[in-house]
């Protein structure tokens, strides 16, 4: 099995209009990639292409496989604010949902154990029978991470996991991701890279096309930020770590 996630000459069009143009990058497995860009930059489209959910031109290889063939070893963590809060579910219903959706009837004891292990990993095993909607936003976010892990994916894709979350939740999720990065590849879209600077291996700056790709310290520069957002965004450098200062970001430390 190949040890890389590779994207070559990727372009995506919606109704004839290019949404992504000529994207090229390669990351090793396991590693941690952060994708940043302004609203409408095509970040979610790039994730969808990587998961084989939108038609694209070019080539995408996930550990040597085409995206649709790689679905079995990819896990997706949704944005919490895109969830329908009108469905009365327990935590276990949420964690087991992807496993159950693969079967018409029943579920194996091993799969239930797998789900419980994932919930234990995020520190919420005691909430197995709790009403999901009664949990705090941070706990819900961790349940979603457990749900993703219950599928035992090699590659984890996260779309704006920090949207509408407080600092404590952010740091808990980041520390969990930090523990995972030695065995899983994590691809994460965010506006706020600051909590992640210490665990990120590569950063991709995206605005319909690739602005920059590389190590965090090389990519997060004031010049690149200006290219990306069209406005000056101050960057603070501290030894080999850098932080952004902006309206939706804050200095870490």
């Amino acid at each position: 099995m190949s040890k890389y996630i590779e994207v070559k000459n990727l372009s995506v069009r919606y109704n004839g209009t290019p949404t992504l143009k000529n994207i090229n990058f390669r990351i090793e497995h396991p590693s941690f990639l952060v994708i940043m860009g302004p609203n409408g930059a095509g970040k979610t489209t790039l994730l969808k292409a990587i998961m084989g959910l939108v038609p694209y031109e070019g080539d995408i290889r996930i550990l040597g496989k085409a995206p649709k063939e790689a679905r079995n070893f990819m896990g997706y963590m949704p944005q919490r604010d895109r969830i329908n809060t009108n469905v009365p579910l327990r935590v276990r219903d949420v964690v087991l949902m992807p496993l159950l959706s693969r079967r018409k009837f029943g579920i194996s004891r091993e799969e239930v154990e797998q789900a419980k292990r994932a919930l234990r990993f995020v520190g919420l095993e005691k909430l197995w029978n709790r009403n999901f909607l009664s949990l705090s936003g941070g706990q819900q976010q961790r349940v979603f991470l457990a749900r993703t892990l219950a599928m035992d994916p090699q590659v984890i894709v996260l779309d704006e996991p920090f949207s509408a979350t407080d600092v404590a939740t952010k740091m808990k999720v980041v520390s969990l991701l930090h523990r995972l990065k030695s065995t899983k590849t994590i691809i994460l879209v965010t506006h706020d890279i600051n909590p992640l600077v210490e665990c990120t291996d590569k950063v991709l700056l995206l605005n319909r096309e690739m602005i920059a790709f590389g190590r965090t310290i090389e990519v997060i520069t004031e010049e690149n930020m200006e290219l990306l957002y069209g406005a000056r965004v101050p960057v603070i450098r501290q030894r080999d770590v850098c932080y952004l200062v902006g309206s939706d970001t804050h200095v870490h430390h």
């Binding site: 990819m74 997706y76 949704p78 895109r82 329908n84 579910l89 959706s101 018409k104 009837f105």
Partner: peptide, 20 residues
């Protein structure tokens, strides 16, 4: 009976369901 699980997944989390 045949589709309730996928139906529920789609209603609760359309993005997550799509990723599967």
């Amino acid at each position: 009976l045949l589709f309730r699980r996928r139906l529920l997944f789609s209603i609760f989390d359309p993005d997550g369901a799509e990723s599967m």
